[in-house]
Design a binder for these strands. Structure first.
Lengths: 344, 344
DNA sequence: TATAAGTTTGGGAGCGCTCCCACAATTTTT
DNA sequence: AAAAATTGTGGGAGCGCTCCCAAACTTATA
C-alpha cells in the first residue's frame, strides 16, 4: 500500500535532491521556484526526484534567504463575548485561512482576550518579525492604531473601512450603503411609506453606511426623513433590536429596516407581541443574511453580505501587495445582494 | 511623544547589537536566550542596548539555526456550518492562541472548508515543515488519521480523546462521564426516578462518555436502565433535541438529561408545548454551560465545561512535549462543574 | 563562418541566528 | 604560591535556502 519513499520522514535538502538528480543546488532551486530558465529535460528529471522523495523546501531557510516568510498575521482584536455570539468572525477566519492555504501562505493568529494585557499584546503584534504582512479584522480601528500600522513598514489590509482611513489605507469592505439602499428601495417599491430604521452600533462605519443608505433611498423617493423613525441608541444586539422596535411601534411605521439580522429577528418578536402581522401590517428587512435569517418566522428579507469573500479578498489583496503586483492603497468594496423572503 | 529609537523600523541583527554594546555575537545570543553564563555587568550592558533599540531576533534565522520554529499548527477539520452555529471552536481557538502567545509561540491555522479538496488539504497539513508540533481539535479522529499523525515524527495533542487512542496517544479532554454522572445524580437526589436521556451524536467519545455517566449514575442508585428512556438517534442538534423530547414525553419521564445545552433548550420547548411545567413536572439538565444555558427560560442546570482551559492545556502540554519536559503520552482529563439553575 | 545574443548551468556569498570549542579571566582548592 | 576547577567570552562552522555572477552551451544575426 505504501511506497518506500513517501513515508513522511522527509528531511532532505535542496543539496540532497541536487546530488540525487545529478545537477546543482541552483538548478533544483530554479525547478522548485518555477524559474523559466531550465531546460525541459532537466526540469523533468529533477521533478521526478522531488516527487519521488516528496521534497519540500525548508520554510525557515527559505525565509531567511529570501527575507519573506510567506506567513501572514491575522489580527482579531475582539472581546470574547462577541466571538461567541457572532458567527461573523468564524466565517471570516474560514475565508481567510482557506484563501491563504490555497496560495501557499500560512496564517498566524492573534486574538485579544479579556484576561490579557492589551498594551503588551499590541507591542507583541506590532513588533512581530515573522509575518510578511497582516490582515486586521476589526470594526474599531482608530487613528492611533492606524498610525502604528503605517509606521511598520509592512503591508496590511483592514477588513471594514475605518473612519480614519486616509487615501493610502488599504481595506476591503462590503457595500453597506448600497445594500441598505437596495433594501429600503425594495420596501418603498412594495408600497411602504413610513419606514423606520433600527440602527447599528454607533462608531462603526458599517452602521454609518447602512444609515446613509437608508437616508439616501428615502430621499431619492422624495420621502421626508423623520428622525423619530430612526432609533437613537441601538447597537446590533438582540436586546436593542427589541427595544428599538418598541419605540418605533409608537410611531405607526409600516416597515422597518434593521441594521442587522439579529436585531431584525428580535424586532419581529416585538411586532408579534404587539399583535401585528408580518408583513401585512409591518414589513421588515435585515442585513447580513446569516443562518437566523432563513430560520425566522417568517423568513427574513435581508441583504446578503459575502463574509467569506471578504476574507478571501483581503488575503489576495495582501499577497498582491506583498509580491509587488499592486501598489499600496488596495481598496475594494464587495457587492452585496438583496434576498427577498417572506418578511416584506 | 515618541523616542528616537523605538520607531518600529527595527531591523538590527545580533551582530549589530554586539557591536553597539562592545561584546561578541555569542554573548548577545546568550543574553537573549537567558543563558546563565554571562556576567551581571555584561548582561545589563547588553540588555540596555537591546531595549533601547527594541531588538528582536529574526525568527527565521533562529528557526534555521536551532531547527525549531516556535510555531504550532492548529488543525480544525470541521465543516463550515458547525463553525457557524457552535461557539465551541471559537472559544477553543481563543484559549489556544492566548496560551500560545503568552508562551512565545505562534499558532498557525488550518481549517477545512467545504469547497477544498480534502486529500490535498491533508497532504499539505501532514507534510508541513513549518510547525514544530500540532494540536488537532476534532471530535472525529479515526484510526487512519491517528496513524498518519503518528507517522510524522513531530509531537501532537488531540483535543477530545479519540476512540482509537492507543497508550501513546496524547490528548486533553473534559471529564464527560463524571460530569454526566454528577448531573444525573443531582436529578436523583432531587427525587426524580424516571430520568430520560437525549444522547449526543453517535461516534463521538463525548456522547459515549456522557451516556456512560448517565448509566453509571442510575446503576449506583439502583434505578433500572430503561432503554425506552434513551433516545436512539440524537446528534447534538436543536432539531434532534426537540424530536428526542417528543419521544420521551410518551414515556412519562419526570426528568431529562440532554447531552448538550442546545438540545436541552429545544427539549424545553417541547416540554412547554406539551403543557408541562419545568421543573415541577419535568426537570431538565444539559451539558456545556454555554450562553444559552443562562438565558433560557427557566435558566438551565448544566455541566460547565472548561473549553478555554482545554485549549490552554493542549498548548502547554504540546510545548512541554516539544521542549522535552515530558515524555510522549500526555493525557489530561479536565474537571467539570455542576451548575445548578432553575430547570431542576 | 565569425560574431553577437540568448539560454542553461554551477558555484560563491550571504541571510541572522545557534552551538560547540578554545581561550581568557576569575575563583577555589591544594 | 601554584595548580585546578569554574565562569565568562569570542570566533568558526553550519543550518538550507536565494540570488548574483560567470562560464558553458545554444541559437540567431551579420
Amino acid at each position: 500500500m505504501t511506497t518506500d519513499f513517501d513515508n513522511g520522514f522527509n528531511d532532505l535538502s535542496l543539496e540532497d535532491i541536487a546530488r540525487l538528480s545529478g545537477v546543482s543546488r541552483s538548478t533544483v532551486s530554479r525547478v522548485v521556484n518555477q524559474h523559466p530558465n531550465v531546460s525541459d529535460t532537466t526540469r523533468r528529471k529533477v521533478m521526478e526526484i522531488i516527487t519521488r522523495y516528496n521534497f519540500k523546501p525548508h520554510p525557515a531557510a527559505r525565509a531567511l534567504a529570501s527575507q519573506r516568510s510567506k506567513i501572514i498575521g491575522i489580527l482579531i482584536p475582539h472581546i470574547v463575548s462577541d466571538l461567541f455570539t457572532d458567527p461573523f468572525f468564524s466565517i471570516l477566519l474560514q475565508g481567510i485561512t482557506t484563501a491563504a492555504n490555497s496560495l501557499n501562505y500560512s496564517p498566524i493568529l492573534w486574538l485579544t482576550s479579556a484576561n490579557v494585557d492589551e498594551s503588551a499584546f499590541y507591542d507583541q503584534v506590532f513588533n512581530d518579525r515573522l509575518a510578511d504582512g497582516m490582515i486586521v479584522a476589526s470594526a474599531t480601528v482608530n487613528a492611533t492604531f492606524l498610525e502604528r500600522l503605517d509606521q511598520r513598514s509592512k503591508p496590511y489590509i483592514i477588513i471594514g473601512r475605518p473612519f480614519t482611513a486616509h487615501e493610502k489605507t488599504s481595506y476591503v469592505d462590503s457595500e453597506n450603503e448600497q445594500g441598505a439602499r437596495m433594501l429600503v428601495e425594495h420596501l418603498i417599491l412594495s408600497g411602504r411609506r413610513r419606514i423606520g430604521m433600527i440602527t447599528g452600533r454607533s462608531g462603526l462605519t458599517s452602521s454609518h453606511d447602512r444609515l446613509q443608505g437608508y437616508i439616501s433611498a428615502l430621499q431619492h423617493a422624495d420621502i421626508p426623513i423623520d428622525m423619530r423613525l430612526i432609533t437613537p441608541a441601538s447597537d446590533y444586539t438582540d436586546a436593542s433590536g427589541y427595544s428599538g422596535m418598541k419605540l418605533l411601534l409608537q410611531h405607526r411605521v409600516d416597515a422597518v429596516f434593521a441594521a442587522n439580522d439579529v436585531m431584525a429577528v428580535s424586532a419581529m418578536r416585538a411586532i408579534k407581541e404587539a399583535g401585528l402581522r408580518i408583513p401585512e401590517d409591518i414589513a421588515i428587512g435585515g442585513f447580513d443574511d446569516m443562518g437566523l435569517a432563513h430560520s425566522s418566522e417568517p423568513p427574513l428579507t435581508t441583504i446578503h453580505q459575502p463574509i467569506s469573500h471578504l476574507g478571501d479578498s483581503a488575503v489576495r489583496g495582501l499577497i498582491d501587495l506583498l509580491e509587488g503586483k499592486v501598489e499600496p492603497p488596495f481598496q475594494q468594496m464587495l457587492p452585496v445582494k438583496l434576498i427577498v423572503r417572506q418578511s416584506t
